[in-house]
Computed example of a mutant assay.
Amino acid sequence: MTPSPATAAVRVRRAELSDLDDLVALEQATFDSDRVSRAQFRRHLDSDSARVLVASANRRRFLGTALVFFRKGSRVARLYSIASLPEARGKGVGTALVDAAEAAARQRRCQALRLEVRTDNANAIRLYEGLGYRRIGSVAKGFYEDGSDAFRYEKTLA
């Protein structure tokens, strides 16, 4: 499959232990709350139930990351976190990370990928809906540390 022009320059790979400092720095630069800690990233890098992905272009610093969780015996994966640097937004980084998360879920024979998104994050909502995600269930009240609500989304994987 040929990458779309929007994501052609963005490369996504599985994160390694040597990426830990960059993962933490990106997380801190991107989020004010609900951050994945250094200890959590370290645990997820070695975990069979998680996949940490990093996006970059031209071998420069990270442009974004994604964290996908898998539950033993479940055919549904969860996109737990996705982050991109402000200067990388609108350049295909989010799309490339979601595509890679879906590929990781398919490798694990998952039939769907679910995620939560802040109800006030219009850009992320537009991204997910544009990639075929559909809202499921009711609003998750007070989902985030700061009390913000979340929408839940799901995409069936072919």
Rank of each mutant, 00 (worst) to 15 (best):
M1A: 13
T2D: 07
T2F: 10
P3G: 09
S4Y: 09
A6H: 09
A6V: 14
T7P: 06
T7D: 08
A8I: 15
A8P: 05
A9S: 14
A9H: 15
V10D: 13
V10A: 09
R11D: 11
R11M: 09
R11Q: 12
V12Y: 00
V12R: 00
R14Q: 14
A15E: 13
E16I: 14
L17I: 15
L17F: 15
S18L: 15
S18E: 15
D19K: 13
D21H: 14
D22M: 12
D22L: 14
D22R: 15
A25S: 15
Q28S: 11
Q28P: 02
D32C: 04
D32K: 04
D34V: 01
D34W: 00
R35G: 06
A39T: 15
A39G: 13
R42G: 15
R43E: 12
H44T: 10
H44A: 11
L45F: 12
S47L: 06
A50W: 10
A50L: 04
A50G: 03
A50P: 03
L53R: 03
L53S: 07
L53Q: 04
V54M: 06
V54S: 01
A55K: 00
N58C: 06
R59N: 13
R60W: 07
F62N: 01
L63Q: 12
G64L: 03
T65G: 05
F69V: 10
F69I: 13
F70M: 02
K72V: 14
G73P: 10
G73A: 10
G73Y: 09
S74M: 06
R75A: 07
V76K: 03
Y80R: 05
S81E: 08
S81R: 07
A83M: 06
A83F: 06
A83Y: 05
S84E: 12
S84A: 14
P86D: 14
G90F: 01
K91H: 14
G92E: 14
V93R: 05
V93L: 08
V93G: 08
G94R: 08
T95Y: 04
T95Q: 06
T95R: 12
L97R: 03
L97F: 06
V98A: 03
V98K: 02
D99G: 02
A100K: 03
A101N: 02
E102S: 05
E102F: 01
A103D: 10
R106Q: 06
R106G: 08
Q107H: 04
Q107S: 07
Q107N: 10
R108V: 11
R108T: 10
R109M: 04
C110K: 01
C110V: 03
A112M: 05
L113R: 02
R114N: 05
E116K: 00
V117T: 11
V117F: 02
V117A: 07
T119G: 13
D120N: 14
N123E: 11
A124S: 07
I125Y: 04
R126C: 05
R126A: 08
R126E: 09
L131H: 10
Y133F: 11
Y133R: 00
K141Q: 07
G142F: 02
F143H: 03
Y144P: 01
E145F: 03
D146C: 02
G147W: 08
S148I: 08
D149I: 07
A150W: 00
A150L: 01
A150C: 05
F151R: 04
R152S: 12
Y153S: 02
Y153C: 04
E154V: 13
T156E: 09
T156K: 09
A158W: 13
